[in-house]
Amino acid sequence: MNQAVTSSITTSRTTVSSRHVLHCCMQSEPAGLERLCRVVRVRGFRIASMSVESSGKHFNIALTLEGSRPISMLQSQLLKLHTVVEVVLGAQQARSVA
């Protein structure tokens, strides 16, 4: 589908690091959090804080992330995980200029 694209990766790889809040719901499975954290790391983000609540069949995960790449790219990669049900982006703020 068409997506609003404000910048390509070539312009997004600037030194501006942003802080993002991301809420993720995924099916509860033993390796679930590992899968999630691995994708976050490999796709260029650091976890500033993370809280996890288990509600029976699901994990509800709140993440505060830092990184300079477009957060929409991470969102789409997380959605590829088979056990991820939903990823919702919260507030974003530019944090620092390296």
Partner: peptide, 17 residues
């Protein structure tokens, strides 16, 4: 077939998944 590939390397004017 994979929407995660859109806009990853180059921004696209139209994407169709």
């Amino acid at each position: 077939a994979d929407s995660a590939e859109f806009n990853k390397i180059k921004a696209a004017a139209v994407t169709i998944n």
